[in-house]
Design a protein around this nucleic acid. Structure first.
Length: 856
RNA sequence: GCCCCAGUGGCGAAAUGGUAGACGCGGCAGACUCAAAAUCUGUUGGCCGCAAGGCCGUGUUGGUUCGAGUCCGACCUGGGGCACCA
């Protein structure tokens, strides 16, 4: 028996698949279509185990569905714009395009080596002008429709490098390169009006019944629709000039108005700015508030800071009640009106603020079962349900009813109106970066913003951008900016902002339908393929990417470019592959392959393999290039072959769960590969023990059923466990010469085994299939057929519990009635012995499963 | 800080509300071998017991149920997202 040699076998079958072109998807077919898509990767240059896991899963689905008779589309491309290429350009002076395309070439080879069944004829990268040019084309249609517009937005500003920073480039409030304290700065930028689609996006979630509940919940919370109110608090006494209408406030909790203890403005609210002109202390406070980055996490967890303006406003429901007006760092100008009323008893942020500045805390919602006389707020605001109290006309109403009563009153008083409020903000798509899709507009001093004429698309990135200095290289390029206005033909400037890379990934799945189409989307092809039947990707994309893709799909559908409104009918979110992180004393991240771990008792220390330098062991985090905690699957494939590597990443844990990476499972996968191969390779020895053909077929068909259901349910680890068990059984099924019945059952088992293994270990399966004497490819062979009548048992063992504890077991016919089972149980001497001295209160028989006797 | 998720043997894990720990790794014992590796077989949650068997056990804690890893409440720990990482 020759040992299985993946180094020879695997390349051979990859060549055979390519020669037969078995993975090409047809844009028309008599078969039903199935579109399986994994989130396309950023071309970092090396495949890591997270990628391998993701693409192996998609490949199992693709191969399974092909075997089930579907016309399968399983494409691949590259999310190729983004910061890492710019960083490489800045650090090493390489051209970002060359760097990116080199990485793509390397990763394409690694993916091909993984044996994934992809239709490579549809491949593209988002940095191809042919792709981003089409993106510019539809962007202009959204612009024309008013879905793209400009307004001021906040950015992270590095005052030393004089540049905009990504959130990732801000560490502890400082710029990652300069170390300068980051500030928030306003910049005029492009936005997409996703808020116009807030309701359809929310409604659409209901139809996505093949999405994980948690993702739908996260998106629902992100959209954050709630009924609230917009109302004015008039100034008590004289108002600041220009603000005679008072402070316009947005709230989701008008029911808590009687608990108001202050009104707070954003530091960049127009009133704050007007007041600061005459108040240097306030101006200094506002400058202080701009410190720090723009991320919500940073703002929300920063220490609450406030400045009392000395102004007072009148409570809307009580002309004799006035409230102080503060300016507070945790109020964002982008949310609502940039001003709130604070109700510390029922909002945690307001409570912290009130405690810090000694403002009153008056509870107005009484939790069920609490006494109104004694209920008090401690360190935690009460945000749960209850009845209004201390609230005048609202007293006794539940939260929702109280909200409506407050809104009615506000409207009756003419102070404001009920409003549906969303947490969702418009999508800022401007990036001041050189490696992205140029926004195809021209700014003319005379005509304003003009779209680039369609016949001039794509607006291509210059090939000679200078990334050696911080800042946007497009803005300082010698020629890119300067052009003529398409309207007045006078001199004008091109927009130098590029689009967020989330735009690139918001429609690529539609482009795969026909990546060569002249128009952005080949509607006929897209109507055929979309929606994707199964989308697979990391759960970290649960909100942003998936929401943006849903939005763009709808916007493009409304433009007539597409027919579907939901791009992904089925979604599977795989867990992340995580790994410990390591840093040198100077803070540089270190690759795990360079780390040696030393364990002494319970303490673990890490050091550099080469220099022995001690390292700091950091948190376990998702693998990412920036933290360098990436492990490549290539080493495993080198030693054990691709199939064993695929089996390892698929079987180590349930696919939706995060895994902390370890290669421990590869030994088991390798043994499985060899055990499977041994069944096909070695000549059947004489039967060492009698095996019953009927029982063997029962196991064959049960395995077919179990593997089929496990694959359909994304329980790949369970499917592989069944394969382990099956191989063990098959190895006992030796057929002596001159025993046609056993020979035939053995062949049935082997034929099923080869095809059941195929989605997981496709190269091995081909080799086995050929060994069986089959002429075609197993990649093109139909899935084994499950025959239920062959899988059935006549009898089953039922555990018997007494008072919930297992005390024995009985045998009963499958489908035996409760009465029959009960008789068998009570006739059982062992059970009878256990029941001595007890009286039976109840006997619960769960058909074919279990018996529980309640006795005392 | 806010939203979401997860927690089961030494480890990765399995289990439509119905025998907790399938399957794999590792360990232990044995076979093969001059020996080792590889391979194969057996065994392997903890405690008590010669054994039969018993008790305990799914992060903690309380509840629902004839029955809870699974459902509900509170808490602890870890992970993800928080709008410029992708």
């Amino acid at each position: 028996m020759a040992r299985y040699n993946p180094k020879e076998v695997e390349p051979k079958w990859r060549a055979a698949w390519a020669a037969a072109d078995v993975f090409r998807a047809d844009n028309r077919s008599a078969k039903p279509k199935y579109y399986v898509l994994e989130m396309f990767p950023y071309p970092s240059g090396r495949l890591h185990v997270g990628h391998a896991r993701n693409y192996a899963m998609g490949d199992v689905v693709a191969r399974f569905k092909r075997a089930r008779g579907y016309n399968v589309l399983h494409p691949m491309g590259w999310d190729a714009f983004g910061l890492p290429a710019e960083n490489a350009a800045a650090e090493r002076g390489v051209d970002p395009a060359k760097w990116t395309y080199d990485n793509i070439a390397a990763m394409r080879e690694e993916l091909k080596r993984l044996g994934v069944s992809i239709d490579w004829s549809r491949e593209f990268a988002t940095c191809d002008p042919a792709y981003y040019g089409r993106q510019q084309a539809w962007f202009l249609r959204l612009l024309k429709k008013g879905l793209a517009y400009r307004k001021e937005g906040l950015v992270n500003w590095d005052p030393v490098d004089m540049t905009v920073l990504a959130n990732e480039q801000v560490e502890n409030g400082r710029g990652w390169r300069s170390g300068a304290l980051v500030e928030r700065r306003k910049l005029t930028q492009w936005f997409l009006r996703i808020t116009d689609y807030a309701d359809p996006l929310l409604e659409g979630l209901k139809s996505l019944d093949r999405w994980p509940e948690k993702v739908r919940l996260m998106q629902e919370n992100w959209i954050g629709k709630s009924r609230g109110a917009r109302l004015a608090f008039p100034f008590a006494g004289s108002a600041p000039e220009g603000f005679e209408d008072g402070v316009l406030v947005y709230t989701t909790r008008p029911d808590t108005l009687f608990g108001a203890s202050f009104v707070a403005l954003a530091p960049d609210h127009p009133i704050s700015e007007a007041l600061s002109a005459a108040d240097p202390k306030l101006a200094a406070f506002i400058a202080q508030c701009r410190k720090g980055g723009t991320s919500e996490a940073e703002i929300e967890s920063a220490e609450k800071l406030g400045f009392d303006t000395g102004l007072r406003v009148v409570h809307p429901f009580d002309p004799n009640w006035t409230l102080p007006v503060w300016i507070a760092n945790f109020i964002l100008m982008d949310y609502g009106t940039g001003a709130i009323f604070g109700c510390p008893a029922h909002d945690q942020r307001d409570l912290e603020f009130a405690r810090k500045y000694a403002l009153p805390v008056k509870p107005v919602v009484l939790p069920p079962g609490q006494d109104p006389g004694s209920f008090a707020i401690g360190d935690e605001a009460y945000v749960g349900p209850g009845q209004a109290f201390n609230s005048g006309f609202m007293d006794g109403l539940e939260v929702e009813a109280a909200k409506q009563a407050a809104i009615d009153k506000i409207e009756a008083l003419g102070l404001g109106e009920g409003a549906t409020v969303y947490r969702l903000r418009d999508w800022g798509v401007s990036r001041q970066r050189g490696w992205g899709c140029p926004i195809p507009v021209i700014n003319c001093a005379v005509c304003g913003v003009a779209p680039v004429p369609e016949d001039q698309l794509p607006v291509e990135l210059p090939k000679d951008l200078d990334f050696s200095r911080p800042g946007n290289p497009l803005a300082r390029h010698p020629t890119f900016r300067f052009t003529t206005c398409p309207g007045c033909k006078g001199p004008a400037e091109r927009e130098t902002d590029t689009l967020d890379t989330f735009v690139d990934s918001s429609w690529y799945f539609a482009r795969y339908a026909n990546p060569d189409a002249a128009e952005p989307i080949d509607k006929v092809a897209a109507d055929y393929w979309l929606p994707a039947d199964q989308y697979i990707g990391g759960v970290e994309h649960a909100v942003l990417h998936l929401l943006y893709a849903r939005f763009i799909t709808r916007a493009l559908a409304d433009e007539g470019l597409l027919s579907v409104r939901e791009p992904f009918a089925g979604l599977f979110t795989q867990g992340m592959v995580t790994h410990e992180t390591y840093r040198r004393q100077n803070g540089d991240w270190v690759d795990p392959s360079e780390v040696e771990i030393v364990s002494e008792g319970a303490t673990r220390t890490a050091r550099l393999v080469a220099a022995g330098e001690p390292l700091v062991i950091g948190d376990v985090e998702k693998m990412s290039k920036s933290k360098r905690n990436v492990v490549a699957p290539a080493d495993m494939a080198d030693r054990y072959g691709v199939d064993a590597a695929r089996l390892t990443v698929l079987s180590d844990s349930p696919p939706e769960r995060d895994v902390q990476w370890t290669a421990a499972g590869v030994e088991g996968a390798w043994r499985l590969v060899n055990r499977v191969w041994a069944e096909f390779d070695s000549p059947p020895a004489a039967a060492t023990e009698a095996w019953e053909p009927r029982a063997a077929r029962r196991i064959v068909h049960r395995t077919i059923k179990a593997v089929t259901e496990a694959v359909e349910g994304f329980r790949f680890n369970s499917a592989i466990a069944r394969l382990h068990e099956f191989v063990k059984v098959v190895s006992t099924m030796r057929a002596p010469a001159g025993d046609p019945e056993r020979s035939q059952v053995r062949r049935e088992a082997l034929s099923a085994l080869a095809r059941l293994v195929a989605p997981f270990a496709p190269h091995l399966a081909e080799e086995c299939w050929a060994e069986l004497g089959e002429t075609g490819l197993v990649a093109a062979a139909p899935w084994p057929v499950f025959e239920p009548q062959l899988a059935e048992d006549e009898q089953r063992v039922l555990p018997v519990q007494i008072n919930g504890k297992r005390r024995g077991e009985i045998r009963a016919d499958v489908g035996a009635s409760e009465a029959e089972v009960e008789k068998i149980v009570l006739d059982d001497p062992e059970i009878a012995r256990r029941l001595e001295g007890l009286s039976i209160r109840r006997v619960i028989v769960v058909k074919d499963r279990i018996v529980n006797i309640v006795a005392a």
